[in-house]
Design a protein around this nucleic acid. Structure first.
Lengths: 337, 337
DNA sequence: CTGTTAGCGCATTCAA
DNA sequence: TTGAATGCGCTAACAG
């Protein structure tokens, strides 16, 4: 009933052979008699034998485990990314340990320590909003545990990263709006605390310039991404004498909150005001009045690419090669609805 | 540069003391001199020492790791559940390994083997659609690794489970619709292959009976949950001579697809036909014409409760107590929009 | 072709 | 108060 998981020792004892013979038989070592090999494999099967990874670690110095640290699994963006990470790990015979930072630096540090304790072979990270130092990650790399940042990539040199550039799509969004005759384009930006690139804003400004539109600070408002904050931001935009006829929102959720608020104010979505946002969540396709366009950031693909890069680094490390710092950039796409 | 993670041996050598002294010092063992203890702790800190969990396993027979196997991380329901699991694990000093079955039995089995290889202390499972046997999970329990099923719970005796009952809310949904005068209530059900309880249907039938409404088979259609299949199901309902005035959908996504199709057919949502669905996804709140009501299934809480139960089982196991089979039932709530 | 043995990092028992 | 020695499961070097 209360059995313990079988070991090669157990198998060896039952067959009256040595543990090394068992070990070799299980690994299809060339120098093992066919009869012995089959015997061993048969018994292993019967006993439901599975090697103990924690023991293998001692010899191979590998756990075949990677860690994934990200802010929050409930956000569709991150759950898609981790799905890509899991699929890629599965294909590479790896398995992923997960930890949510909930955008708290302290918790992020604790998780990294736990990952270290479990001797992950590498780490995938999307940093928390409050992460203003990456020492805790660099400490891992010191010990030869590669770290690949994805999506929320710290603004630091000498790192491996995978992210999705929003610049061109942001410019494209303005081009699209300008081509429809919009001259007053509002922008609801996200919290500025994030230690990451602000390509949305760069694209916004460049887009305006290209279309010979004036950059008006009063058209740029900020939301902390909560519904309340977004609505307050909208209120600001709507109270302008010269209201915007188009609004670019930090992401789809912000757009949804903004649109709901606008609707309450008797504003006709896509008529009085047109919206463009980031993320391209599937749900927007079900809206009667969806945003005019949305910037697709390919979270699943980011996860896949980040995992692939990590496995490459792990492999090189095993082969005692040094890998140059690699920064993979995917390009977002402006999807017109 | 290419350092290895420090061990207690390393610390011992540097301080010219024995490994056992180091081990005891780090664990605040009573019989260690304060001076030695502080010395050890200081150096450990400096070296960034973190114990090796894989080594600890040999002594404690525990990895402080649990496995989570579920169909798909991209579904909001599961990503919420796993978020609850991760939060609970974090609080209990555990960490979770994840695996997606993608509703394939074979992949589920492979993942379970990998989890076993990694010697997880316990397993949380939401079974795949094609899982028609739970032998691979029972094999774990044989080796004293507890398994807790959640949400998609197999219809089997002698298991631990956490799930959310939909029965009362399903009856409640009919009551609500009947009270508004609806007499023809359609039901778009999910695929019947799932090896789990069908409380939606039971509630549907009981609700009709309670409200003295006739159960009409032609009002029950099936979707495999894809958009196409849902629309085909809707087509059937809409082609009836005696069309339904209300429709209960398997979940919010099915409802969204159904509503979109109805809209294309010039049917006025919430006027010609009213919808009720399951899941209560946040996105439904942003619709101009949301479903009239939705059944909340508390995925995050299910994750939390499942993890809590699992940790209790692990604890009892460590204390060499036997735990009775426990089946936790949460109750869904009918949220009226 | 197969067996013996050392050693990975740690907790722990026994000895001093 | 501290040290030495053992064993957990496995692989691989070495020995037959």
């Amino acid at each position: 009933m209360e059995k313990k998981l079988p070991t090669i020792k157990e198998i060896a004892k039952r067959l009256n052979i040595s543990v090394s013979t068992v070990s070799r038989a299980l690994h299809d070592h060339a120098s093992i008699g066919l009869r012995t090999k089959l015997q061993v494999k048969k018994l292993a099967e019967e006993l439901n034998y599975v090697p103990n990874q924690t023991a293998i670690f001692f010899k191979q110095r590998k756990t075949f485990t990677i860690g994934v640290v990200l802010p929050n699994l409930r956000e569709e963006f991150f759950s898609s990314a981790i799905s890509g990470i899991e699929d890629t790990s599965f294909d590479n015979n790896y398995i992923a340990l997960i930890g949510q930072s909930h955008d708290k630096l302290e918790r992020e540090k604790t998780i990294v320590d736990t990952m270290k304790k479990h001797r992950v072979d590498g780490l995938l990270v999307s940093i928390s909003k409050s992460t203003n130092t990456i020492e805790h990650f660099e400490a891992l790399e010191q010990f030869n545990i590669p770290v690949v940042y994805f999506d929320r990539v710290p603004d630091a040199p000498n790192i491996h990263s995978v992210w999705c550039s929003l610049y061109h799509s942001s410019v494209g969004a303005i081009n699209l709006l300008a081509s429809k005759g919009h001259k007053r384009i509002g922008y609801i930006q996200g919290p500025s605390t994030m230690n990451i690139k602000n390509e949305r804003m760069q694209g916004y400004q460049e887009g305006l310039k290209k279309n010979k539109l004036h950059y008006d600070e009063s058209l740029v408002v900020t939301s902390d991404l909560s519904a309340d904050s977004t609505q307050a931001a909208m209120e600001k935009l709507l109270s302008l004498k010269n209201k915007p006829t188009a609004i670019i929102a930090f992401n789809d959720y912000v757009a949804l909150d903004a649109m709901q608020f606008a609707r309450q104010k008797k504003i006709k979505i896509n008529k009085d005001i047109v919206f463009v946002s980031y993320a391209n969540l599937p749900v927007t396709h079900y809206l009667e009045t969806p945003p005019m366009a949305s910037v697709e950031q390919f979270p699943y693909e980011q996860g896949v690419r980040a995992a692939e890069l990590l496995f490459k680094l792990i492999e090189n490390k095993t082969a005692e090669e040094t890998s140059p710092f690699e920064n993979v950039v995917l390009y977002s796409e402006l999807i017109i609805h």
